[in-house]
Simulated scan of single mutants.
Amino acid sequence: MGYYVEVERGVKVYVEDTGYGRPVVLIHGWPVNHRMFEYQLSQLPKYGFRCITPDLRGFGRSDCPWAGYGYDRLADDIRAVVDALRLPSYALAGFSVGGAIAIRYMSRHQDPRVSQLLLLGAAAPSFTQRQDFPYGMKPEEVDAFLAMNDKDRPLMLEMFGELFFASKVSAPFKQWFHGLGLEAFSHGTAAVLLSLRNEDLRPDLPRIRVPATIFHGTLDRICPFPLALLMNQGIAGSRLLRFEHSGHGLFYDELELFNERLQSVLAGSP
Rank of each mutant, 00 (worst) to 15 (best):
G181L: 13
G136E: 04
P226G: 11
V265R: 14
S167N: 14
F145L: 15
Q175M: 15
M231Y: 05
G268C: 08
F185Y: 13
G136F: 07
G247S: 09
I235H: 03
L241A: 02
R207N: 12
L240P: 04
L227C: 10
S238T: 02
D150H: 12
E254H: 03
M148W: 07
A190G: 07
I235L: 12
L146A: 00
P226L: 04
N232Y: 10
G249R: 04
A184I: 06
K138C: 08
S264I: 01
D253C: 07
T218K: 15
N259S: 03
M159A: 08
F177G: 03
C223S: 12
H187V: 01
F160G: 01
A184E: 06
L219F: 08
R242D: 02
Q233H: 12
G179L: 13
M137T: 01
G249V: 05
V210G: 06
L227G: 03
R207Y: 06
L157F: 11
C223G: 04
L182I: 07
M137P: 01
D143E: 14
E260G: 12
E183M: 13
S269T: 05
L255N: 11
L180S: 00
V169D: 02
F173A: 07
W176L: 11
P203G: 01
L229V: 12
P206F: 02
L163E: 05
M137I: 00
F177S: 00
L205N: 11
G237E: 01
K174I: 05
F164D: 00
S264H: 12
S269A: 12
A144R: 14
R209C: 10
K151L: 15
Q175C: 07
T218N: 04
M159G: 01
S246H: 03
S269E: 13
H216K: 11
P172W: 06
E140G: 04
K174H: 11
Y135G: 06
L163N: 02
R209T: 12
I214C: 03
L157I: 07
F165A: 09
G249D: 00
D220C: 11
D143Q: 14
D200Y: 10
S195V: 07
R207K: 15
P203K: 12
E256I: 10
P139T: 13
V265S: 08
L155G: 05
S186E: 15
L240A: 11
D150F: 05
C223M: 09
G179N: 14
D200A: 10
G268V: 02
I208N: 01
A212R: 05
H187A: 10
V169L: 15
H248G: 00
E140W: 14
T218S: 03
E260M: 12
S186Q: 14
G268K: 14
A212D: 02
R261H: 15
S246C: 06
K174G: 14
L157P: 05
F225P: 04
Q175K: 15
L241K: 03
S167P: 04
H178T: 00
T213L: 11
N198H: 13
K151D: 10
Q263V: 14
S195D: 05
L157A: 09
L155C: 00
P206R: 10
V142P: 04
D204F: 09
M159Y: 06
